[in-house]
Nucleic acid binder design. Structure first.
Length: 560
RNA sequence: UGCCCCAUCGUCCAAUGGCAGGACAGCGGUCUUUGGAUCCGCUAAUGGUGGUUCGAAUCCACCUGGGGCAACCA
């Protein structure tokens, strides 16, 4: 786990109390209950960390339960993706369950409710039911079928199950109160008819329980103690409690709500993700610009970083938005201690070292890690007469605070030599195409014996040895923190960031990385953290920028 | 408009009737063979009005503001 002394949020305090008092007479048991109809995202990660974390911290168990009660939308491919992503995050469930395995038990409970007069078959159509439910300010009115006899209800329910009726002909509803101030309690629907093939149960069933019915009872059946969900289910707690009580579960599991994670500049709803994918705004569910766990993974973020981020965000009841800076901090903080540094030139500018012997190649030792990272290792990087540096590291007419190369200036080539720019070569259009420099042979490795200081250190590669690569530079997918906060008549697609992806071809990376496997992470010194992409091939390397380095020069530039 | 939930630095989270604190961001400095990292310092908050109390961010009332609920979705 990423932390040994987890923050005591209000949920953990409650669980600690319940564990100490023995309230449930059994070990703490939580659950993660995804519906297998989409890919897990950063918001799920918070819930996973909470539920799995609590089970671990309190010596309890955690169940992975697929809430697969809607045959229209669910698919086995999503259960595989969800399992893969939970494991990637670093968690393993104690038990794996499916709500669809409880269909028989759930049906028995429904029959019992009918027998008790607590549920009835309603034969009004969808529209009538909606109308009769009333509104938030006006009470609903009972269905004309509400007072059917127990016998008739039992008969109808059995025939619904037997497949005698078409979709929509009848529903099973709890008999509570059509005037209830909580809309959820106005005789909520328990079962609907769906002649559809379920991805696990096939055609065994043609009636399917709704969320409110299946969820609480599934918790109760499994002996869940703490059922943690997001704020929007607060009103559903009434029906949750009603059902587990009517079904006779004691002590009943307790639902507690917390605020979902909302990350600035992102969207995670399945509907919106689907549109982004289908309309081609992104390349797929694992597009590195998306905050699906598959996108995050492809972007090069580690599970440890996500866990640290989730811990840092905390758990509370207040709906909140989290700044992207907090996320990026967690990512950099993790990568800083983890990945080797290598040299990569993004926009190459040729440099000829005029006093360096033609044809000579030196191998210079370059540490993989800076002095303050407790890891060791190094590789040799070739140095020769013709190099590339980044265009951004040269200015013909540099301002005072620009510490890099300019005419007549001396800088250090990282792990290399001090060089001084003597000439600037331009093409017919006046663009700088080459720099001519001299090097100081006494500064090999980057130190000058005479104690002479240079302002700047820049990265470089040897022109003849560097490997061409493609860089994919990502920015936020949206231009505004809240992509749903747009003028009337527009939606989140109107605030897509046209610069969310910049593909750089012809970048030059040092040869040491040429044969590394896909998924290898690096810091390209002074540029950012990168990971080799799934598309990367030997001879056609592709790197995703996971996150930039903090850049105080960019800030300084912005001031003027 | 009925019911429910919520309200602390710019952001996120603490303080559980007794000195409002941490993290991120920002600003300034230190250090530096990454304008990275580190280290140091600074800025910055209890939505409002009443009440209870020796004492209120905390308890109560009202107000204001934000969010959720009227799918045969979850």
């Amino acid at each position: 786990m990423s932390n040994d002394t987890p923050r005591r949020d209000f949920i953990r305090e409650m669980v600690a109390e319940d564990a100490a008092s023995g309230r449930f007479g059994r070990p703490i048991c939580t659950r993660f209950p995804p519906e297998p109809n989409g890919y897990p995202h950063i918001g799920h990660a918070k819930s996973i960390c909470l539920n799995f974390g609590i089970a671990r911290e309190f010596g309890g168990k955690v169940h992975l339960r697929f809430d697969d009660t809607n045959p229209f939308t669910e698919d086995i491919k999503y259960v595989e993706a969800i399992k893969r992503d939970i494991r990637w995050l670093g968690f393993e469930w104690d038990e794996e369950f499916y709500a669809s395995d409880y269909f028989e038990r759930l049906y028995e409970i429904a029959v019992a409710l009918v027998r008790k007069g607590k549920a009835y078959v309603d034969s009004e159509n969808e529209e009538e039911i909606r109308e009769h439910r009333g509104t938030v300010t006006v009470a609903g009115t009972p269905s004309r079928y509400r007072d059917r006899s127990v016998e008739e209800n039992l008969d109808l329910l059995a025939r619904m199950k037997a497949g005698e009726f078409p979709d929509g002909a009848h529903v099973l509803r709890a008999k509570i109160d059509l005037a209830h101030p909580n809309m959820i309690m106005r005789d909520p629907l328990l079962y609907r008819i769906r002649h559809a093939t379920h991805y696990r149960r096939g055609d065994a069933w043609c009636i399917y329980p709704l969320y409110d019915y299946a969820h609480g009872l599934s918790d109760a059946i499994e002996g869940i103690t703490h059922s943690l969900c997001t704020l929007e289910f607060k009103d559903n707690k009434d029906i949750y409690d009603w059902l587990v009580r009517e079904a006779g579960f004691t002590p009943p599991p307790e639902q507690t709500e917390f605020a979902r994670l909302v990350l600035d500049y992102t969207v995670v709803s399945k509907r919106k993700l689907l549109r982004l994918v289908n309309e081609g705004h992104v390349t797929g569910w694992d597009d590195p610009r998306l905050h699906t766990l598959s996108g995050i993974r492809r972007r090069g973020v580690t599970p440890e970083a996500i866990r640290a981020f989730a811990d840092g965000v905390g758990v509370a009841r207040k709906p909140a938005r989290t700044e992207m800076a907090a996320y990026e901090h967690a990512v950099r903080n993790d990568l800083n201690m983890r990945v080797p540094r290598v040299l990569c030139v993004v926009k190459p500018l040729k440099v000829v070292i005029t006093n360096y012997p033609e044809g000579q190649v030196e191998q210079l030792e370059a540490s993989y890690y800076p002095h303050d990272v407790p890891k060791t290792g190094s590789r040799m990087v070739p140095f020769s007469r013709e190099l590339y540096i980044d265009r951004d590291d040269f200015m013909e007419d540099p301002p005072k605070k620009f510490y890099r190369l300019g005419p007549g200036r001396e800088v250090r080539l990282r792990y290399g030599y001090f060089i001084t720019c003597t000439d600037v070569v331009k093409d017919a259009a006046g663009e700088v195409v080459e720099l001519r420099c001299t090097y100081d042979p006494a500064t090999r490795g980057g130190d000058s014996p005479d104690g002479r200081k240079v302002q700047g250190t820049i990265h470089w590669v040897s022109a003849a040895h560097a490997v061409d690569c493609e860089l994919r530079l990502y920015e936020t997918l949206f231009t505004v923190p809240d992509p749903d906060d747009v003028p009337d008549g527009q939606d989140f697609t109107s605030v897509l960031n046209p610069n969310s992806l910049t593909v750089v071809r012809g970048a030059k990376v040092e040869p040491s990385v040429a044969a590394d496997p896909i998924g290898s992470r690096y810091q390209f010194e002074r540029t950012g953290y990168f990971v080799s992409d799934d598309d990367s091939k030997p001879g056609a390397l592709v790197f995703n920028r996971t996150v930039t380095l903090r850049d105080s020069w960019a800030k300084e530039k912005g001031k003027s």
